[in-house]
Every structure is written in structure tokens, then in C-alpha cells.
Amino acid sequence: MDMEEFTNRIFAIKTTSKQERTVANNIKKAIETNATDVQVVAIIVPDELKGYVLVETPESQARIEQLVEKVAHARTVVRGETTLGEVAHFLVPKPVVSGISEGTIVELIAGPFKGEKAVVKRIDTGKEEITVELYESVLPIPITVRGDNVRVVDRGEAS
């Protein structure tokens, strides 16, 4: 193998909604069973990017369009290519509690207190948990919830 640096491009493929993982599996299957001769070396399915999968490939866009025609739930290739530098942040997901600090007002979006607003009292970055106190409750009861179960309403400081 030559020592040339990678010349892979990254394309975004539009998928049927909620079928992103299926599409990734289908592309993998298509390549493994030699149903297509289009080469793809890796597929990223970031949770933040709904309705798309990113494929890393040495092929051209036209070839990826050929692949998409053979894969169920894959719809179209987004025009233009990108580089790893632009999508690298998807590979290292940032902790869900980033952007939340003590005093932040959040809304619980899951669990028994769904829909309630609460003030953040403590943050556990390692476990990605936050301890909150419900806004409208008379007694201050601390509740520990997962960081992805809340939505930030107000960051606290008026800036």
C-alpha cells in the first residue's frame, strides 16, 4: 500500500426519518454482500444530525448516488462534499451537561416531573447528572435527573 495521505471525501446522505441506523446497516450489508462495487470505508450516524448519515469514501459523488439507489431508506446525496475536519466534532460528543450551570432554569422533559420547571443546584459532570429543585414546589426537594432529560429555559445571567 502506498504511503499517500487519505484522500477520502465525506458525503451526507439524506435518509427517511428515524431510519439513519438502518441506512448505515444497509450500506454495510450492501458492501459486504458485494451488491455494489462502490467503496465506503466508514459511516457516521451522529444523533445530533437527524435525517442524515455521513459516509467516508474515496469515491466521487456520482458513485455515491449510485449506491444510494440500491440502499433502502436512503434518499439523496447532499450536493457537495466535506472533510473530516468539519465533521470531527460529531465523533467526540460533548457532555450533555455542558451549557448548564448552577442557577440555570431548566424544564424537565422526561420522567415523572415532565413539563415542570426547575432550578439547577448541582452538576455532576462525570455522571452527566444534575440535581434540580422544582420551581413551583413549596418544599425544596432536590431531584437528580439525567443531563439529557432537561431543556435549558434560562441561563440565569442576563447577557
Binding site: M1, F6, N8, E20, R21, A24, N25, I27, K28, I31, E32, Q39, V40, V41, A42, I43, I44, V45, P46, D47, E56, P58, L84, A88, F90, L91, P93
Partner: peptide, 19 residues
């Protein structure tokens, strides 16, 4: 868990190398 990655050819993949 969240985020899904399929590696088909790790030798030629820049993503696989980075991870």
C-alpha cells in the same frame, strides 16, 4: 448509548484512525 459509527475498512478510513 448515542451516536452510531460503522467502520467497513479501518485501514483506509481516516475516521477509524482518528478514533
Amino acid at each position: 448509548w448515542t451516536g452510531y459509527l460503522v467502520v467497513i475498512d479501518p485501514k483506509r478510513s481516516e475516521i477509524a484512525k482518528r478514533l
